[in-house]
Amino acid sequence: MKGNFPVTALENIETPFYYYNIPLLRETLGVVTHEAGKYNYHVHYAVKANANSRILSVICENGIGADCVSGGEIKAALKAGFSADKIVYAGVGKSDWEIDLGLDTDIFCFNVESIPELNVINERASIKNKIAPVALRLNPNVDAHTHHYITTGLNENKFGINLIHLEGVLDHLSGLKNVKLVGLHFHIGSQITDMDAFKSLCVRINEIQETLYRRHIIVDIINVGGGLGVDYENPDRQPIPEFKSYFEVFYRHLKLRPKQQLHFELGRSLVCQCGSLMTKVLYVKEGVNKKFVIVDAGMTDLIRPALYQAYHKIENLSSEGPVREYDVVGPICESSDCFGKCVSLNETKRGDLIALRSAGAYGEIMASRYNCRELPKVRYSDDI
């Protein structure tokens, strides 16, 4: 063992592959359900973070709902055992067949992002003689101070409805007979570690609720999305995010109306730390001023460093040698296929097993077959 990894067993498995620590996932889910349960909060898992069938099944076993952003994710959630009445369907571009799927399976709610989308949902529901429950996704214009690719709650963003348009949307909604307004939905971004951002969201929601109250509108559901970040720098220091403080922020600062339910859509924080990408060293190449560790995993297996310049802690599980600095790169024919520069690793040689940590979220699910590569395989801790 090195850390929580059964190195001897893992070294005999063909790389690259994703390794999931199932006990850690179960422990994380236990903390989430306990902390949310204190306030009778409802948690949905954001399937886009990781749709691995085994991961979905474990999450479903814990009574958590599903947050889906495509028809495919709705199908995956249903197949894994999630009850339709716990499935929320978000997404800025829902096609007709996806809307029909949600209506036919009687999902809990559609999170709606525009008047044109409201119109189409109303039309599809009318054809089926159904009433579609909808929540309006509003942009609260709260800056989460994260990477610009994963900030979603600002005014100038493809997601959601700007607050200046809210009155017009409410007026339009009142004329639609086959949709029912049941909630308000918010999501300000991802990988948020500053709790003040969530406090600001609470303040803005309180203001919006007051505006609606003046129109005699009280919705049943407030959905605050997700966004809670994880510790990529040192995953062993905090393998389970600070859910206690997270839920407390909303309990202290959000003013719910009587009988209103508060819903969350957590993804990264549930699954990120339970997953690692395992890869082996193909070559150690001498450069002019640096050494390159060339591994058999690439951006096709974990695209986040190339796409977001995201950091993942990299560890040599095979070596206890002195620490050296390397650039860790993959085999893809792209200069951006780099997992890290000037990475401190124990002295590394061909065949060493390398772990890219905190890869349980947006790792396997974003893998591709670019360069005609095979998709990464998967192994689970309780199967080894």
Rank of each mutant, 00 (worst) to 15 (best):
L184K: 04
H34R: 14
P140R: 04
Y45I: 05
E325R: 15
R237W: 03
A132W: 00
T279Q: 05
S57E: 14
E156P: 02
I217F: 05
K349L: 06
F247Q: 01
Y283T: 11
S114E: 02
Q273R: 05
V31P: 00
I127E: 15
G267S: 02
L10M: 01
I188D: 10
E207N: 05
V47L: 12
I99S: 02
V134R: 00
N139W: 03
Y370P: 07
N40W: 04
G175L: 13
F198I: 02
N21Y: 07
I59Y: 01
G227H: 07
K290G: 10
E320D: 08
G37D: 04
V32D: 00
Y232D: 07
L201Y: 03
Q261T: 15
T348R: 00
D85I: 06
D231S: 06
A310H: 13
P133G: 03
E242C: 04
E265Q: 04
S335D: 14
L262Q: 13
G37I: 06
F264N: 06
R137P: 04
F17W: 00
N129H: 09
F198D: 03
K79G: 14
Y89S: 10
V47G: 10
K86R: 12
G267Y: 00
P23I: 04
R369D: 12
H185A: 14
F82T: 03
S368R: 09
S200V: 10
V112G: 02
M1W: 09
K290C: 15
V281N: 01
Y283G: 01
S57P: 09
N289V: 11
P23V: 07
I384E: 07
Y251H: 14
V92I: 09
V328P: 07
G93A: 15
V288A: 15
R373W: 13
Y311S: 06
V120R: 14
N141E: 14
Q309H: 13
H44D: 12
D96C: 06
F292A: 13
